[in-house]
Design a binder for these strands. Structure first.
Lengths: 225, 225
DNA sequence: CCAAAAGTGTTCCGTCTACACCCATGG
DNA sequence: CCATGGGTGTAGACGGAACACTTTTGG
């Protein structure tokens, strides 16, 4: 105990995860009812406290792993929330993280086990503490970034049809997109690759399956959609 | 002491301010040498610990007020930084805030008193802890937002010439802008108002002074530069 | 044979970009 | 009178938006 900062006081710090999924052409959020006090029974994001031996990111990944069993999840910080009375119990500062996962990768057992479920953004209830605010900020962030970062693929299976991809964009942006213009733009993007495979589940005719080539995509690429 | 979260441990939380100014056609940062251990003598952002009775924002505003004597400062959160060993002394989580001020509003006395000075971004030294990373992230944020939010006016006096305004954009974006195209765009923006006043300090001919009309600007306005 | 989703080009219009010269004035 | 920064318009390129019909096939 060297005690550099002993005169100052400490606070609890937690992380809260805004977990987005995409199903039935809708953006969904993974939320559950709080199983502890304070706020027991209220709808809430899934979160946890930051331990002394883990970074903020590690804490968020731990919470995500614990909830979903998934290791490689796309995740970005949304921001720190620090109003004095944001938590009804004690003074807690929380750092929100936004995660994008493919709903198919997440099995129903774990869902039940943790008492969480996918809820459409349109039908989002009032959430515990300032969690609604966190969600709003996360959506703003998503909308901003979707055009400059290849985020959408995290919400889809590794093989997807162009119609599915378009629906992801429509769900995030909240507006309809012209099919021909959309496909025209996609064709120009070299790291979205057409495969020989065909998906017959969504239509009688069948739709070509595409794949996102992570290698072909490099950070500095002039990505625009 | 109700003790909801007693089983979890607390950490120190601080705020660090990335304070941008604009002078001599350059973006500047207000930094100083640390006057305490650990890291005494290293170049550093100006910061402080978050007290139990203040929100994160309040803490940042307090730090800014203490340093500059200014109350109404444009400020945005950059993000939370939480690597375990980011602070060489103890485990401290820090939330970075980006502030934009007009260098003329800040008098030299306070500068000396706090041992801080304006340093060009080009000449930024290695900073204490992860402060360089905070600065990088703040700049990325600035560049992203400058085209959709009227940020630049916070770096200028309330009356400014179009050349000054252009230089702010150039400094933030790091590239030259065509004068005629820039002025054409400005003319279309109704909340940048030409005044009858003329600034004679920068040229013999004199340049018209403009003003940013906060009222005319509304959040939902389709602002684009 | 028909319903349902997949797939495909062209035209138009507005926006961005490149570019060069005259103006006013203080020293 | 000249050096210095202030101020102005146009033409061509480019990219985004609007728009409708044919194809395939399972049931």
């Amino acid at each position: 105990m060297t005690g550099f900062y002993g005169e100052h006081s400490k606070v609890w710090v937690s992380v809260d995860c805004i977990i987005f999924g995409f199903d039935h052409d809708k953006l969904k959020l993974l939320i559950g009812k709080r199983q502890m006090d304070p706020g027991r029974g209220e709808w809430s994001l899934y979160g946890g406290f930051v331990a002394p031996d883990e970074s903020l990111e590690d804490a968020a990944y731990r919470v995500l792993l614990n909830l979903t069993g998934l290791k490689k999840i796309y995740m970005k910080q949304v921001g720190a929330f620090g109003a004095i009375d944001r938590d009804p119990g004690e003074r807690v500062i929380s750092v929100a993280y936004c995660a994008l996962i493919n709903v198919n990768d997440y099995d129903a057992h774990l869902q039940e086990e943790h008492g969480v479920q996918w809820v459409s953004l349109d039908e989002l209830p009032r959430l515990y503490s300032d969690h609604n605010e966190m969600v709003r900020k996360a959506i703003t962030l998503l909308r901003r970034r979707i055009n400059t970062e290849p985020l959408s693929f995290n919400l889809l299976p590794s093989l997807f049809t162009l119609t599915q991809l378009q629906h992801v964009y429509e769900a995030i942006l909240g507006e309809e997109i012209d099919k021909r213009n959309f496909r025209k733009r996609i064709k120009q993007i070299d790291f979205i690759e057409k495969t020989e495979l065909i998906d017959k589940t969504t239509s009688k005719r069948g739709a070509a399956l595409y794949r996102f080539n992570k290698r072909a995509y490099s950070e500095d690429s002039t990505f625009k959609l």
